[in-house]
Design a protein around this nucleic acid. Structure first.
Length: 788
RNA sequence: GCCCGAGUGGCGGAACUGGUAUACGCGCACGACUUAAAAUCGUGUCUCGUAAGGGAUGUGGGUUCGAUUCCCACCUCGGGCACCA
């Protein structure tokens, strides 16, 4: 056996694995299936940085373990390649976004392959491929058919820098999620998807999936279900409907507040005596950005609608009506009954404008609602999804505007509507997509009446392609349907989906919505797309700051692979900290992972050259993995340690506790090296449990030891229950809760005997001198505490 | 403001269900090997104390034979939501 040359060795196996296609998922297999998924990357021009592979390696470990457990594993990858960075780059350089995407995906593919991740590359997909987005457009047409895609003139979030509309989910703290520019409001005709129709299901069905609790919670908060009552207040002959979660406080309602945009305000114009003042206020509010409206120290403002009054239906009292910016037009009914006694916001407002605060008694919520003719209702904070973008690099919305027929869907047989190649990708200030300038493409015939018509020039948001990509993996090359039903039935749902927390209320929610719609249409076989969802932490730059080009602290995995090898990088990334937590990169610390890998190589070498081979256990006791090894290897059974380590690694992988799994294997490796002889079969089991983490070196040693088949298709080792039991156990002796000494006992020894034995111990006697043991607490195989 | 999550050596982090706090790794120090260096191996490495022993898991209390773990109050950091009636 030669020296460890990671570059040669890793390349060799990567080529061989690819040639044999051992990571290809089989569509017709008798094995049980396992579908593991990572969020497919956006192929940016900067290439991979060391943060990208962390989730890939994590799920790779799960996938490799599943293969060895006998599953037919689908672990696919593709490219979520539509989006602004590529388009902006195209604008700057005058290059075709297609060419830019090709170049970027080539780089990403090469880099990911160099890490030995066991993706099934035969199923690679790309959202910008017309063969793919044909089906994104097709699904849109299904939404349209069912009335869930509709056009509406609404005030949308407009990013003046990116010159495009944004969904609510893409606005973070009043600024554009992507570029940080403060978002403006613009009235525009937009395509909308009626995600709110699924609000109830999206909320309720969270009970049926295995997501991390904080992910469920974040989705629940975003959907924002609340139960309350709609109650009507009479205003002259007109009616104001309010929504309240506290109908029981209605006797304390001393005024009404409408959102400034509330329709009734305009309708009552004639009766409002201070109309000039009211109109001025409405105008002021309209010109405010979200940031100004929600500024922290902002006090509430409002204007009374003088000349009109409302009647509280519970006690028939006349109360005043106000408009104020603290009431939102987009939630509930856009109007509230103000109860300053019980609601802090109403109280603030009442105090500022000297409105009555009365302490009327509480009444039964349901009874009073019924009595005043109201009804119990459920409201959601979730808004419909603004689905139009006024940019080039996205899926064209497959719709035609006909002068006579109105909106006409592009016939399914004419899909895909391909993006035309153009020279200028610059978005326009008018808020139109650059596609609007391509008259040759825009002007078309109406599919219905064959008359003059124009194509829709808005494109879809980059969340469109990613809302269903996991379905396409089940059947990525199908030309007739988005995926064959049989394949969908076999592969879905995704068994384990790992991704970033930043997608909880975006991609994760959107794709659940699409999936539920497709399920309703009978097009997919499960009501939820993902059975289990976990999240990984980010890798930060050295010192704990974000890795970014502007800070110049981005680490390229290419360099690490070159210097240390893919196996070392993989082990390091899994070892550096808990998988679900952010950790700072430390190039200095990688050496630890490399030393471990080299140690494994040395032991393998020793065994293959027959210097370390041995049969039968030599020692009698082993420490627990993760516990201190008390040097004396004569005392340890290396074989027991093998089995304890198999157990620990097997269990830790399932919990994504990769760091502690590696720690246990490091302990075992250190012990192996200290031990003169090791049984080859035991060592092979160690190679197997290490192989998901370090697939190349383990495959190499595996083959050197005479195995003909890949370690990837070997059977995951089991631990021997008897071997992980210790006959002799060390227990700690405490006196008054302080550790004083330790004794060794047989693990099956009776409690009484142990206690007796302890009392006679000389150290214990010394502490007992004069006093007497009041109480003795024994915790099996752990400790004994004597209270004096 | 509200809701999550976290706070442990010089650093990244361990600790099952309340049971030896600081595993594993980095760094550092010393030693072995070497002409030397690197690599590797070994030993040590929370803190005060010569020792016996004492003190430390953000701070202050509590429950318990025993608390990093449970409870209460507070501080700091990270994340989410943010006038949602």
């Amino acid at each position: 056996m030669k020296e460890y040359e990671h570059l040669k060795l890793e390349k060799k196996w990567q080529i061989l694995w690819e040639k044999k296609g051992i990571y290809h998922a089989q569509n017709n297999s008798k094995k049980p299936k396992y579908y593991s998924l990572i969020e497919f990357p956006y192929p940016s021009g900067d290439g991979l940085h060391v943060g990208h592979p962390r989730p890939y390696i994590g799920m790779d470990i799960i996938s490799r373990k599943r293969r060895m457990e006998g599953f037919n594993v689908l672990y696919p990858i593709g490219w979520d390649a539509f989006g602004l960075p590529t388009e902006n780059y195209a604008i700057k350089t005058g290059k075709d976004p297609r060419a830019v995407t090709k170049k970027n995906t080539d780089t990403f593919r090469r880099q990911i392959k160099s890490l030995g991740v066991s993706f099934d590359w035969s199923r690679e997909i790309n959202t910008t491929d017309p063969k793919y987005y044909k089906w994104t457009q097709w699904i849109f047409l299904q939404f349209l058919k069912k009335g869930l895609a509709y056009k509406a003139k609404i005030a949308i979030n407009w990013c003046p820098k990116d010159k495009t509309g944004l969904a609510n989910e893409e606005v973070v703290g009043g600024v554009c999620e992507r570029c940080g520019t403060p978002v403006e409001k613009r009235e525009k005709e937009q395509w909308m998807l009626a995600i709110t129709k699924y609000a109830e299901k999206l909320d309720k069905d969270l009970d049926t999936v295995d997501y991390l609790p904080q992910i469920k919670l974040a989705q629940r908060n975003w959907i924002g279900k609340s139960e309350g009552a709609e109650i009507e207040f009479l205003v002259g002959k007109k009616i104001v409907k309010v929504f309240t979660t506290r109908p029981d406080t209605i006797l304390g309602a001393t005024y009404l507040v409408l959102a400034p945009e509330h329709e009734l305000v305009q309708k009552l114009k004639d009766k409002i005596k201070n109309w000039n003042e009211v109109e001025k206020y409405i105008k002021e509010i309209k010109n405010k950005t979200d940031i100004e409206r929600t500024a922290e120290d902002k006090t509430k403002t409002g204007v009374e609608l003088k000349g009109i009054k409302a009647i509280n239906p519970a006690n028939k009292e006349e109360i005043s009506i106000w408009i104020a910016d603290y009431v939102l037009a987009t939630y509930g009914t856009g109007a509230i009954m103000a109860v300053p006694k019980h609601d802090e916001r109403d109280r603030d407002f009442a105090q500022k404008y000297n409105l009555p605060i009365v302490d009327k008694p509480l009444v039964d919520a349901k009874e009073i609602t019924k009595k005043v003719g109201g009804k119990m209702v459920v409201k959601f904070k979730l808004r419909d999804w603004v689905f139009s973008r006024q940019r080039y690099w996205g899926e064209p919305i497959p719709v035609i505007h006909c002068e006579k027929c109105g909106i006409v869907p592009v016939p399914e047989k004419n899909l895909p509507v391909e993006l035309p190649k153009i020279k200028n990708y610059e978005p326009t200030d008018s808020g139109e997509s650059p596609l609007a300038n391509i008259s040759k493409w825009v002007n078309t015939k109406c599919p219905k009446c064959k008359g003059k018509a124009k194509r829709e020039t808005d494109t879809m948001p980059n969340w469109a392609g990613s809302s269903w990509y996991y379905l396409r993996y089940a059947d990525p090359k199908n030309k007739k349907v988005f995926a064959d039903k049989k394949n969908l039935k076999y592969w879905t749902p995704v068994d384990w989906y790992n991704g970033g927390n930043e997608h909880t209320t975006l991609h994760l929610l959107y794709s659940r919505f699409w999936h539920k719609f497709l399920y309703n249409e009978g097009l997919v076989s499960t009501s939820e797309p993902y059975k289990k969802r976990t999240a990984h932490g980010m890798i930060l730059g050295e010192g704990g700051v974000k890795m970014s080009k502007s800070l110049g602290n981005v680490i390229n995995p290419d360099e690490i692979v070159k210097i240390y090898g893919a196996d070392t990088l993989r082990v390091y990334e899994m070892f550096m900290g808990p998988f679900n937590q952010s950790v700072a990169w430390s190039t200095e610390s990688i050496i630890g992972a490399r030393r471990f890998i080299e140690k494994v190589w040395r032991i393998g070498k020793g065994i293959s050259e027959n210097q370390k081979n041995f049969s039968g256990p030599r020692f009698s006791e082993a420490p627990n993995p993760g516990q201190a090894v008390q040097n004396s290897s004569d005392f340890l059974s290396i074989r027991k340690l093998f089995h304890k380590t198999i157990k620990k690694v097997t269990e830790d992988i399932e919990e994504m506790h990769f760091n502690t799994a590696i720690s246990a294997m490091m302990i075992l490796a250190t012990e192996m090296e200290k031990t003169e002889k090791i049984e080859t079969e035991d060592f092979k089991k160690f190679l197997q449990i290490l192989s998901p983490f370090a697939p190349h070196i383990t495959e190499e040693i595996w083959s050197i030891l005479g195995e003909k088949k890949s370690i990837n298709v070997s059977l995951w080792p089991r631990w021997d229950k008897d071997l992980i039991q210790d006959e002799n156990v060390k227990i700690v002796v405490q006196i008054n809760g302080k550790v004083r000494t330790e004794i060794f006992i047989k693990s099956d020894e009776k409690e009484e005997e142990i206690k007796e034995q302890t009392i006679k111990n000389e150290v214990v006697l010394r502490y007992l001198a004069g006093g007497e043991a009041k109480k003795i607490i024994y915790v099996k195989n752990r400790l004994i505490n004597i209270v004096v």
